[in-house]
Structures are given as C-alpha cells and as structure tokens.
Design a binder for these strands. Structure first.
Length: 423
RNA sequence: GGAGGGGUUCCCGAGUGGUUAAAGGGAGCAGACUGUAAAUCUGCCGGCGAAGCCUUCGGAGGUUCGAAUCCUCCCCCCUCCA
C-alpha cells in the first residue's frame, strides 16, 4: 500500500471514530475499534454491529433510541447492523427477576412483537442495512452438552461480579439459574453472529464483556463493545423504562412527546441533547454553559429540545404544532386546539358532578373526583367547582378542565347527537 | 436432608391481637408559586352519593367479641449447615 493510501485510510478511520465515540460511556477498546475500522475501510467489508433486544416490550421509547441512533450512525458510515431479538428466553419464559409475571411466549407472539419492533425501529434505522435476527435460531438447536460446554467458560465468581447480581445476592433477592446463564447466552449470540461490535447501555457492560471472552475462547477476534449512558426518564432519576412509567414513546402523539419532554427536570436537559440529538460539540458546550450560568432560562433550551425530538419522530410541522399548543395551554393558559367531546348517557338534563367526572373517564373513581374537586382542580366552563355536591346541567355542551392538562367537552347523550357538537 | 428468616397497599418498607385503610419514603395527582407538564412549598393518595359501609396485608381453613398480627395446612423466596 502506498503511503498516500494508508494516510487516506487513517483519516477516514479518525473521522468514523470521532462520530462513533460521541456520547458513548465507554468503548472497549478504542484501539481495537480503530483497527477494525481500518480493516473494514481497507477491505470494503462493513463491520457487523449487533445489539440485542428483549422480545417482550415492543414499545420503543427515547431510552432505546440512544443506542439505536448510535447504530444508525454506524449504518451511515456504511456498516451493517444486526438487530437481534432475544426471543429464546421469551420462548422459555423466565420466571425470575423483578418481573415475576413474565410468562412464556408463543412463537406467534414473538413474531408479532418482532413486527411491531420493525415498524418502530425503522423510524431510526436504515432498513437496507439492517438484519433482523432471532437468537432462538441457534440457541434452540444447542444440546445440553453444548450448554455445558458453554458454561465451562465462565466461573460463578465471575458471574457474581455483575453488579446487579451481587446486589440481589447480598440483599437476599432471588436469582434463577436461567438468569445466571443469561450472560452466557447473550455472549454466545456474538459468537454465532461473529459480531465485530456490540452496543448496549452501561448496564449491559458485563454481558457485552462475556461476549468478548467467549468469542476469544471460540477462536474469534473479540468484539468491540460500546456502552451508552442510560437515559434518565421524565422523573429525572430513574432510568427510562416502560415499567416505571417515566418514558417517552416515539410512537406517541407529538404533543405528548413535546409535553413530556418539557416535564423533564432542568438538570436532564444537557444529557437529552447529548444523547437524543445530533448537536455538535460546540453547540452542546454552549448549552452546558447557559445552563450553568443560569442567565438563559432553561425553559428555552428545553423547548428547543422538545421541538427537535418531535421533529425527528413526527416531522417539523408536527413539532411546530406541538410547540404552539404547549405555549397556548401552559404559557397562556388557554384552551387546546382540539378537545374531544364525550356524550354521557343520561335521561336527565342534570347530573351530579362526580358522576360526570367518573362517567366520562376523566376520573377513575369517585374518590378521585371528590379529591380533585376538594383541591380546586376541577373547572367547568372556566369556573372552579367548589362543591362536591354540585349538579351539572349537561343538556348543553360543557367544557370540563381537570388539573392543568385534562380537557373534555361533555354533553348529555340526549342532545348533540345530530349536531356532532362541533366547537 | 437439617436449622432459621421472610412474603404488607403502584414500588420500597414499618407494623406482631383492638387506637390500623395500615408509619415512613418514592412514584403519581392537585393547589400555590413560577420563565416550563423544571425546581420549591402545601395537600391528597383502596372502593362506595361517603353517615357509615365494603374490600385489602402470599393462598385456604381455624381460634377470638375482634386478626396483617395467634394456630393448622399449602405455595413461593432467602440464609446457614450437609
């Protein structure tokens, strides 16, 4: 190879490396990554970049997108992504861990979840450079002998090093053998796929490392592992996840995505920019400075953030609309553009306010309705309801507001059926 | 196989016969404030048109005027010993 050619490669390597490194928590190891990149550029063979996904939760939220976006960057650099659905444990049905309800899934269910995944995931990934695979393809074929052979590669002490295992073990929480084997199974995925790179959240570090070791034991060049920081949820402390309910789904309505983003604590703004958008380092630094100095209202940055995120998943127009709506409802305390109409079944013109709230679904129980009224959180046509015993005339359309952001028009089913109640 | 500890409301976690719909924290919700569905403060936080009543403390029985608390059996988990 000429000197010029090798120089060219090394520039390319540096360029790719910088893109890949942005926002990562850890790259093990950077040197290996560079050498893999160099080889790939040299030979024209794309790197196989793998990430595994749980088959049970096909609701993709911003937390997932942190690594997905990183995968996309690999694709844009010409590499191949393997989106691996860990259906095997789903087929077995792991009875342990936090989620004791996790039950055995049928192949049909797994297939269905995979379809849902596809629909959502290609909002981020490039379908042409993505291979979707299932680890049951090789794990199911393994004999007990194979499994034992695999187990011999890892010691109990090594497995117990894993932080969450150790914590659970120490605090007397159950760990099933299946969970113990889990890292090995995941690691073996890398062997089966001959992965060059594996991505995951920082909580996956251990599993990813096992993959490296197994590959080495099976005579392969170990994969590079890249961990991404865990995105905090809307509560600002817990990791974003479906089960804690602090997530922002990429399939949600634009105004929900916008509003939920606005509800993150100010401290989380920087991380969100870093992990969820393509802002350059100078831009990120500027935001960091602003937030630290406190001269710029953090809200402004948060609005920009919310706008960007909605733009990515719903388009610019939807973002404009969501921003406008937010401004209107929470800035100027006006009514949202569209308020659904609920026709409540009643033969009378007048109905007890609590009945209206529960009957329309605004409140889940009459206790909640009473509480809300008592606390001054219920308005009808702009007037605060001050008595739990109030009757409401619903022969005409009434606008009910509960708290800051629950709006509903209610009317008796007797009237308005023909008119449709347009506002 | 033996010995001991434990399963509490959305989550964590107190409670060992009545004063317990069950401390405390978290989450959630509301109000106030505000530049934000940030932060902070205050309040609410099983169900019932709410006086009172009903359901809840792993499951099923039992003791008692009265049980999350005591007894029996069962299920599940943990620790130590082998």
């Amino acid at each position: 190879m000429t000197e010029i050619a090798s120089k060219k490669i090394s520039t390319q390597v540096d360029r790719q490396f910088e893109i890949i490194r942005r926002g990562t928590a850890e790259v093990i190891s950077e040197e290996e990554l560079k050498s893999k990149l160099a080889k790939s550029i040299e030979t024209g063979r794309p790197l196989k970049v793998k990430e595994g996904f749980d088959p049970t939760a096909p609701d993709i939220h911003l937390g997932h997108t942190v690594t997905l976006r990183k995968l996309r960057q690999f694709q844009d650099l010409g590499h191949e992504v393997i989106f691996l659905i860990g259906d095997f444990t789903g087929l077995i049905g792991d009875p342990s861990g936090r989620d004791t309800q996790r039950k055995r899934m049928t192949p049909e269910e797994v297939q269905q979840n995979a379809e849902t995944y596809k629909k959502q995931v290609f909002k981020i990934l490039d379908p042409d450079r993505t291979t979707i695979d299932f680890n049951s393809r090789w794990l199911k074929e393994m004999t007990f002998e194979d499994v034992l052979g695999l187990c011999a590669h890892c010691t109990v002490a090594r497995i117990l090093e894993r932080d969450d295992f150790l914590n659970r073990y120490r605090s007397g929480k159950p760990i099933s053998m299946l969970e113990f084997l889990y890292p090995l199974a995941q690691g073996y995925d890398s062997v089966a796929l001959e992965a060059d790179v594996e991505l995951g959240g920082t909580d996956q570090k251990f599993n990813l490392l096992v993959g490296r070791e197994l590959q080495r034991d099976y005579g392969q060049e170990p994969q590079v592992i890249i961990t991404m920081p865990l995105l905090v949820g809307t509560d600002g402390t817990e990791k974003m996840s479906k089960s804690t309910g602090n997530y922002i789904g990429i399939n949600e309505a634009p105004k929900e995505i916008y509003g939920k983003t606005m509800s993150i604590p100010d401290e989380a703004i920087y991380d969100y920019f870093l992990l969820l958008t393509d802002l350059s380092h100078p831009q990120l630094d500027e935001i960091k400075r602003d937030l630290q100095k406190g001269e710029v209202n953090p809200m402004e940055h948060k609005k920009a953030l919310a706008h960007k995120i909605v733009t990515i998943y719903c388009g610019r127009e939807a973002a404009e609309q969501a921003a406008g709506e937010f401004e209107k409802v929470f800035g100027r305390k006006e009514l949202p553009d569209e308020i659904p109409l609920f026709k409540i079944q009643s033969e009378r013109d007048s109905l007890w306010i609590v009945r209206v709230l529960t009957g329309s679904g605004l409140c889940s129980s009459s206790g909640e309705a009473r509480r809300l009224i008592a606390q001054g959180g219920v308005y009808v046509d702009g007037e605060r309801i001050d008595s739990v015993d109030s009757e409401l005339d619903i022969s005409r359309e009434r606008l009910i507001k509960v708290g800051k952001r629950r709006f509903l028009k209610v009317v008796s089913d007797k009237v308005g059926t023909a008119s449709g109640g347009k506002a």
